[in-house]
């Protein structure tokens, strides 16, 4: 292993936190989605992401070597210790925003996991090889909804476009250089954007022309929304220290 453990720890934690925070946002939709099938779909997508997050957090704990478990890492870190990108942490109470974000996130994860599945790190390769098949469904779900909403009614077209415009500033952070990265984030840019933009154009929507947000999630800098998300996610565990199922 040429990557120093501390840097590898941060890298794995970043991928784990992207999946974990996104899973928590997906969970918000349970009982709130526009129809029962969608409720089940978003819950299942969140469950897949949670499973990926658990495997990655467990591995991050092993890399760190300080005895921290997946639960310690998920429930006992404060926001400044989280390494997820800003794309996943902001509220997604708008359905079109949820779909726009999922389209970007899942397409990026799809390209990333394919590359990681043949990485030199056998644990990450195993997690990624498993996840690749799951995120294919997530990409497809987001693609189908983007097409329906974009090429739907005047209102759905407008709302889907507004959602893309709102999410687009947070896309670039996925491709920013990251210490310890086993797959160069910049190398994924063309493939990810190519696939996403193909869907956007097919849905009769426009690719937004906007300046990227500052970002900084990989260094522990976050929007104010992450703290609120963590307060809800961590509350039970912190209120009952040491409790197990």
């Amino acid at each position: 292993m040429t990557t120093p453990p501390s840097t590898l720890f941060d890298y794995v934690l970043g991928l784990a936190d992207d999946a974990l925070v996104s899973a928590q946002r997906m969970g918000w939709w349970i009982s709130r989605a526009p129809e029962l099938e969608e409720d089940v779909a978003l819950a299942n997508i969140g469950l897949d992401q949670l499973g990926q997050a658990r495997a990655l957090l467990t591995y991050a704990g092993a890399v760190e070597g300080a005895g921290r478990t997946e639960d310690d890492l998920a429930y006992l870190r404060d926001d400044r210790e989280f390494r997820n990108v800003w794309l996943v942490e902001r509220p997604q109470a708008d359905f079109a925003v949820t779909i726009a974000r999922l389209l970007v996130l899942a397409t990026w994860q799809s390209e990333l996991y394919v590359a990681l599945a043949s990485a030199s790190d056998p644990t990450l390769a195993g997690v990624a090889g498993k996840a690749v098949k799951e995120v294919a469904y997530h990409v497809d779900h987001a693609r189908l909804w983007t097409l329906r909403l974009g090429d739907g009614t005047e209102v759905s077209h407008l709302r889907m476009q507004q959602a893309l415009d709102a999410e687009w500033p947070y896309v670039e952070e996925l491709f920013a250089p990251t210490a310890g990265a086993l797959v160069d984030p910049g190398a994924l840019r063309e493939g990810v954007l190519g696939r996403v933009e193909e869907v956007v154009v097919a849905a009769t929507l426009s690719v937004p022309q906007v300046a990227p947000a500052i970002g900084g999630g990989r260094r522990g800098l976050h929007t104010e929304h992450l703290g609120h998300l963590l307060a809800e996610m961590q509350h039970l565990h912190r209120s009952h220290p040491g409790a197990v199922w």
Partner: peptide, 17 residues
């Protein structure tokens, strides 16, 4: 054929489901 015996990706997995 999506993954081979050692878990390596061998098939088309980035296209539609």
């Amino acid at each position: 054929p999506v993954t081979g015996p050692a878990g390596q990706v061998t098939g088309q997995v980035t296209g539609p489901v």
